[in-house]
C-alpha cells in the first residue's frame, strides 16, 4: 500500500510537471502579448518594448518556464494583471472560501445520499424507493441555475428570510452562516440527486446477490442483513464517484458562485479566463489538477480498504 502511494505521488508530480508545461506553452502560443494587454491599446510601441524588457519577456520561453516553476515551487505564482496583486494571495483566499463551501456541502451531501440511497435500494420498488427515485431524478435534472433562481425567489424575494448574495462580508447586513445557506442548498440538491441514484442502484444490485440470500437464510433479520452484509458491498461502487464530487465541488461551482456573488475559486477562474489573466489561470489549473489527482489517490486507497479483492 505504501509502495503504491509512493508510486502514485511520483506519478502525480510528473503529471503536474507536464500540465504546467502545457499551460505555459499554450500561453506562449496564444495571440496578443501580455504587455500590450497591461498597457492598453493607446500605449506606444516603445513603451511596450520597455515593459517587455523589464518583465524579462524577451528571453527564451524555456528559461522563463523554469524560472516560473522555480518560483511556483516556493508558492510564488507571479502577479495577476487583472486584479493587480500577487496571484498567491488572491488564489489562496478564494480557494479557502471555496473549500469552506465545498466542505459544508460535502458534509451534507454524502450522509444524505448514502442514507436515502441505501434505504431506497434495500427494498427495490417499495414505496420509499419510488419516492426517492422521483425526488433524485428531479433534483439531478434541474440545472443549478434554475434551482438557484427558484430558491432565491422563495427565500429572498417572497419570504425574505435569507440573503440574496453571499459576499462573505460581515458588513452586508446578514450573519456569515446565513450567507452559506442558499449556496449549500443549491449545490446539495443538484449533486445529491445524482449520488442518491448511484447509491440506490448499487444497493439494489447488491440486494439481488446470492450472498444476501445466504445471510438471510442463515437466520439474520432483514435489518442485520442490510447493516452487516449489504452496506459495505453497496458502497464499493459509489465510493469513487463520491470522491469525484470533490473535484466538482472545488472547481465546478462557477454557476453557484456567480449567482450568489460568492468570492470563490471557480468565479476567480472564470473572471481570469475572460480577462486573459494568464498567471491566475495557470496557477488555478495546477491547483485543480492537484485536487483531482489527490482525490484519485484517496479514492484508490479507500477502494482497497473497502474491497479485499482489490490489492496492488
Amino acid at each position: 500500500m505504501l509502495r503504491y502511494s509512493a508510486k502514485q505521488l511520483l506519478n502525480m508530480a510528473l503529471t503536474l510537471f507536464a500540465v504546467s508545461f502545457l499551460v505555459f506553452a499554450l500561453n506562449e502560443l496564444s495571440p496578443g502579448d501580455v504587455t500590450r494587454k497591461i498597457l492598453g491599446p493607446y500605449a506606444s510601441q516603445s513603451q511596450v518594448d520597455h515593459l517587455t524588457r523589464e518583465m524579462g519577456l524577451d528571453r527564451p520561453a524555456i528559461v522563463r518556464y523554469f524560472e516560473y516553476m522555480g518560483r511556483a515551487l516556493t508558492g510564488d505564482f507571479g502577479d495577476s494583471i487583472y486584479y493587480r496583486q500577487p496571484v498567491s494571495t488572491l488564489i489562496w483566499d478564494r480557494l479557502g472560501n471555496t473549500l469552506l463551501l465545498a466542505a459544508i456541502s460535502f458534509a451534507v451531501i454524502v450522509p444524505l445520499s448514502v442514507l436515502l440511497g441505501v434505504l431506497a435500494g434495500m427494498r427495490e420498488r417499495g414505496w420509499f424507493d419510488r419516492a426517492v427515485s422521483v425526488f433524485s431524478s428531479m433534483c439531478a435534472s434541474i440545472p443549478e441555475f434554475a434551482m438557484g433562481v427558484f430558491l432565491l425567489g422563495i427565500f429572498v424575494v417572497w419570504l425574505g428570510v435569507l440573503p440574496g448574495t453571499s459576499p462573505l462580508r460581515a458588513d452586508s447586513g446578514w450573519a456569515i452562516w446565513m450567507q452559506f445557506v442558499l449556496p449549500v442548498l443549491v449545490v446539495t440538491f443538484y449533486d445529491a440527486g445524482y449520488l442518491i441514484a448511484m447509491v440506490r442502484s448499487s444497493m439494489v444490485e447488491v440486494m439481488r446477490q446470492p450472498y444476501i440470500r445466504t445471510a438471510l437464510l442463515k437466520g439474520n433479520s432483514f435489518r442485520n442483513v442490510v447493516a452487516k452484509h449489504a452496506l459495505r458491498n453497496a458502497l464499493i461502487t459509489p465510493f469513487t464517484v463520491i470522491l469525484l464530487q470533490l473535484n466538482y465541488l472545488v472547481s465546478g461551482l462557477v454557476v453557484v458562485e456567480t449567482l450568489f456573488a460568492y468570492p470563490g475559486f471557480g468565479r476567480l477562474m472564470l473572471e481570469a479566463a475572460l480577462a486573459k489573466d494568464i498567471a491566475v489561470l495557470e496557477a488555478g489549473t495546477l491547483i485543480a489538477v492537484s485536487v483531482t489527482m489527490l482525490t484519485q489517490l484517496f479514492g484508490d486507497l479507500g477502494y482497497m480498504a473497502l474491497d479485499p479483492r482489490i490489492r496492488v
Binding site: 446477490q209 446470492p210 450472498y211 440470500r213 445466504t214 445471510a215 438471510l216 437464510l217 442463515k218 437466520g219 439474520n220 433479520s221 452487516k228 452484509h229 459495505r232 458491498n233 464499493i236 473497502l306 474491497d307 479485499p308 479483492r309
Partner: peptide, 24 residues
C-alpha cells in the same frame, strides 16, 4: 422464521463463490 433458518434448516447452494459475502 429466523430461528428456524440456519438453525433447523440450512442450505447449500450452487455457485459457492457468489453465495459467500466477498468482503467478509
Amino acid at each position: 422464521l429466523s430461528r428456524i433458518r440456519g438453525n433447523r434448516i440450512a442450505m447449500v447452494y450452487q455457485d459457492p463463490m457468489s453465495s459467500l459475502n466477498p468482503v467478509m
